[in-house]
Design a protein around this nucleic acid. Structure first.
Lengths: 200, 200
DNA sequence: ACAACAATGCTGACAGCGTCAACAAAGATG
DNA sequence: CATCTTTGTTGACGCTGTCAGCATTGTTGT
């Protein structure tokens, strides 16, 4: 337990990433409200004002966090999308990936969606969102071309699908729907989405 | 502009409601992050610690705010539900009411859904949620009895429908979907929900 | 009527926070 | 090797939520 003077080099070397990593850990463990720049600085072994060099604002840190969230979500979705699959299974895989991400990172997801697009950095953010939605849009568009899905503005259809996913994910992440129930129900959910509520 | 000593009675008389009202105004105008107990106290013309008598915590105030949100949302939904309407129009009316509320109170909605169910006051909260979801569940159940909707666990179906609504509302409230577009698209959205994405 | 009590206010203090300005060390550049 | 830039440090400021102790008012039981 010796303090271990440690004689850190004056320059941390990788403070920015360290801060982001710490922030994400705190976010996951204690929620967004418990995030403090000073605390992060302490954990990184650096003075209380050091974070200011890398993030002008607390908000700037949160933005960066959200951005990296979109990045990882986008990757997860792209990795989960297999264009060779038949429509229903393809959609199911995508939905499962989205839900899994939401359950793994509920606080991060909240951060990502709570974004009030203040003009700064909104550009990157918008691009990230587009990329995230891209996977879904591609599936819809493909299916439409093959006639597996009704005609209509693909953006509208993507919106409906995305909204449903987002809704379920938000329910599950918020705890008003047990994780297992949500995951188990995915198949049925996609089926309903495709076939509708009315009897055929 | 005289300070007008005003000689307020020592007891404010209705501080609790005044605080809640002020909080909601701030919430609507400047967002949840800008909410400060001390500022609210100043606006109400009381000392900085007075709010503590009515809300043990800042969180307690937020909970109360969310609770009243559920109340009003529930009322709006119940008022919008006309059991005499045919299914599709009935659902559309409900969806429109939900969306309208979300667009009117985006920050409040965020608060309501960001609820981490800490054991305290979660009881009231859960009841409020149930009441809110009730309207929707009733529509689904009614339609099922009449055979206008496929069989299956009504809770599942309600969940799908509710999730879709919540998703759209969250998109719209978050600004990634213009309000007008969302409102105009409701009819189509309900249609898609009922008939599914696949061609018939 | 009045004493006791509960409810609701006030003041003052505390630690923690984000942010800024002024200064210092280390790297990078020419 | 001198100079400039980047990235640290320290110290201060005003703000916040919360608490303890005290004051005033309203209510209740006798």
């Amino acid at each position: 337990m010796a303090p271990m003077p440690e004689s850190r080099p004056y320059h941390h070397g990788d403070l920015r990433s360290t801060l982001l990593a710490g922030a994400e850990r705190t976010l996951r463990e204690k929620g967004a409200g418990a995030l403090s720049l000073r605390e992060l600085a302490r954990e990184a072994g650096v003075s209380h004002a050091a974070p200011g060099r890398h993030f002008k604002d607390k908000q700037a840190l949160l933005n960066a966090l959200a951005l990296s969230g979109y990045d990882r979500l986008g990757q997860a979705l792209e990795a989960a999308d297999d264009p060779a699959l038949p429509l229903q299974r393809r959609l199911t895989a995508l939905a499962r990936a989205y839900l899994a991400f939401s359950l793994d990172n509920p606080e991060l997801l909240e951060l990502m969606y709570a974004r009030k697009h203040e003009p700064d950095a909104s550009e990157q953010m918008a691009a990230a969102v587009d990329r995230t939605v891209g996977s879904l849009e591609r599936v819809i568009a493909d299916a439409q071309e093959r006639g597996e899905i009704i005609a209509g503005d693909p953006q509208h259809l993507t919106l409906l699908t995305g909204a449903t996913l987002q809704g379920i994910a938000s329910f599950a992440a918020g705890g008003m729907l047990p994780a297992e129930t949500a995951l188990d129900g995915i198949e049925e959910l996609v089926h309903l989405l495709l076939h509708g509520l009315k009897p055929r």
